[in-house]
Design a protein around this nucleic acid. Sequence first.
DNA 1: CAGACGCTATGATTGCAATCATAATCGTGG
DNA 2: CCACGATTATGATTGCAATCATAGCGTCTG
Lengths: 212, 212
Amino acid sequence: MRQSAGWIEALTGTNRTRLSVRAGEAVFLQGAAVTAVYAVKRGRVRLTRRLEDGSAIVLHVARAGEAFAEAALFADHYHCDALADTDTEVEAIPKADVRARLEADPGLCLDLARALAAQVRDVRARLELRNIRSARERVLAWLRLQAGRVPGEVELDRPWTAVAAEMGLTHESVYRALASLESQGTIRRKRNRVYLPGRAGAPSRDRPTLSI
Amino acid sequence: MRQSAGWIEALTGTNRTRLSVRAGEAVFLQGAAVTAVYAVKRGRVRLTRRLEDGSAIVLHVARAGEAFAEAALFADHYHCDALADTDTEVEAIPKADVRARLEADPGLCLDLARALAAQVRDVRARLELRNIRSARERVLAWLRLQAGRVPGEVELDRPWTAVAAEMGLTHESVYRALASLESQGTIRRKRNRVYLPGRAGAPSRDRPTLSI
DNA sequence: CAGACGCTATGATTGCAATCATAATCGTGG
DNA sequence: CCACGATTATGATTGCAATCATAGCGTCTG
């Protein structure tokens, strides 16, 4: 769910260039001719669209292990800036190489489509999560979405501050929500684990449906 | 940007079944074996994930002209429910047919990837938009994102109420934001058009960057 | 034509998350 | 080891969007 570079790992035998980019510098700029697609090896890259009046909107933040600019495979020019947030290392794979491989290898193309479909699902779920106004309910919904593998358990792989940003809340609100949920017995916490007892026999209809 | 069923229109010659679904009824249910991918012809379909404790989380709302369950192409079982929000008509295309065509036709597969990449971009942009807290700034950013073709102009193809929902604001807030932006001269409105004068020579650095 | 319904619009009030402040704890590197 | 930064808290206050209410308007329909 998190890493979106899987298909790019499967893309063996292509030229790859390792680039080091200092914080604030650009991997590519909006309007430049597309030369490559990228994978973040270390650090963080921010994709922003510059608008006519000079303002900018963040479209995405790609982290280590993620590919970015996949859409560039289908465009002549980059539609956004890619700016290093911190000191960052990326791998560049020439667009032409990737296209050639994709056109020759339907299996690889399907892998790409699979990765993109997974991304769509992931980011859509995050978007719908934002439709939950209440911080408590939002945090709870996020936890329940994470509790995929072990049913009633979530193990964090990053600090709550990062999770808070992903959820679109301040970390203070998240800590408060967690404290509130724990005090009312909805969750339990131990170290970086959260347990969702999910009181036995809770019927679905007594709980308000989380919807848009 | 809006329609995501383009590739499915290009998929000619496959079996298609037209289904009518009453409001509240299911197109498919979580856990069921994947049989088809779908396109909404009329109405609205809500994709929800049911959780162990009976609660549900909305993953996506597919509207007329959009395809849904593309991810099903890569799965054996549906991972969510598809419930008709209103009386709805959908078109079902058997998964096996689609897979066969995709494996045989790299061009079609690339079309699918292209459509998915566009969806990722679109929904990411919407997600980042949510990171703007201020209703005024969010509405303004949305307008600027829409003003792609004609630089300083946005023409609405749907009512503000729908736009408000997409932006994650109440329609009241949107009307207020529009009124405020207009009164301060940032935008002008005529019928269903919005003009963004974008005061000439506005330097980029005097405006706070909209970021996460 | 009347009535219903959806869209546009604005006023008043309130709830709640952001914000600002402060502090304990933990981990890390110099 | 100690200093510094990041993380995990929690308290007080405030700003602002949601909510509730009301109304004019447009358009569709019987």
